[in-house]
Nucleic acid binder design. Structure first.
Ligand SMILES: [Mn+2]
Ligand SMILES: [Mn+2]
Ligand SMILES: [Zn+2]
Ligand SMILES: [Zn+2]
Lengths: 140, 140
DNA sequence: TGATTTGTTAGACAAAGTCCAAACATTGGC
DNA sequence: GCCAATGTTTGGACTTTGTCTAACAAATCA
């Protein structure tokens, strides 16, 4: 279970804990992701952060998301060919992907076992296992 | 096992079998994919097809790949945020994705079982299950 | 044949994402 | 407080993938 109510101060602490200088922009971007616990695109994050008044530029949104990714504070989810989703849940988990609405739903990986995978090519190690279950409304 | 040596005539027959008019461009694009049995991007396909002399435009490459996708002659593989790969293998299978080289390796889905997945949200049906194992060379 | 349908094309366009140099902010030494 | 060094943000140019459009060409039909 994730904490339910994050404050901007929590975000500052989180960033400091990763050796990241908690600037106003970084805090707002982290807050957008962690306070909602949703899968958001860079564009959506920028819209949320700049909702009331302009807080950050596009360049900073991308810089910051790439910085967070580097520190494994967020994870990328690649399911839509046209945009990346950023995921504040960095624990091992998989996804349902609603092809109609674009919505992503988390599946805890502890409940899931995958059997019968072939051995890795020699000299290779696993960086991550993604299971994506593409779903759509019945019938059509 | 897939057939090993496809001819352009095989491609014409394949397309006719799906009710697709086998034009020169469509045959070349199908041949690029099926004769190699590789995972190729639209850009790579265009480069292959236009290697000797100009055969097709960018618009036709995309039109044709979308047409093939509609007829389930090819499948899209979404692993790289910057481009789609087209896969001539439409049977149920998964992928190793080499993060360093960008190479995709097929994993037959008949060997793999996935257990412990939660029930689908009500009113939803599964359109497909993708397992992507991101791998990289050991150590770094 | 002329008319209609089907397929291809160049190039304009859109959207996601990167890059850069300039501007701005923060810090620590003096 | 002032200065320099360092770190951060920014607008806008740029790149890449992919779509769209309107014109053209080829094939099919009457
Ligand atoms: Mn503000
Ligand atoms: Mn030719
Ligand atoms: Zn998630
Ligand atoms: Zn494949």
């Amino acid at each position: 279970m994730e904490k339910q109510h994050y404050t901007r101060d929590d975000m500052a602490g989180l960033l400091r804990g990763h050796g990241i200088n908690p600037t106003h922009q970084r805090i707002e971007i982290a807050y957008a992701l962690f306070s909602r616990q949703e899968h958001l695109s860079a564009d959506q994050i920028m819209a949320i952060v700049n909702d009331r008044h302009s807080e950050t530029s596009k360049a900073t949104v991308y810089n910051t998301l790439n910085l967070f990714k580097l520190h494994k504070l967020v994870r990328e989810v690649i399911v839509d060919p046209s945009k990346v989703f950023y995921d504040p849940n960095t624990g091992p988990h998989h996804h349902f992907y609603n092809l109609q609405s674009g919505e992503l739903i988390d599946i805890d990986a502890r409940d899931v076992q995958i059997q019968g995978l072939p051995a890795l090519p020699t000299g290779m190690v696993t960086e991550g296992v993604d299971v994506i279950i593409r779903i759509r409304p019945q019938h059509t």
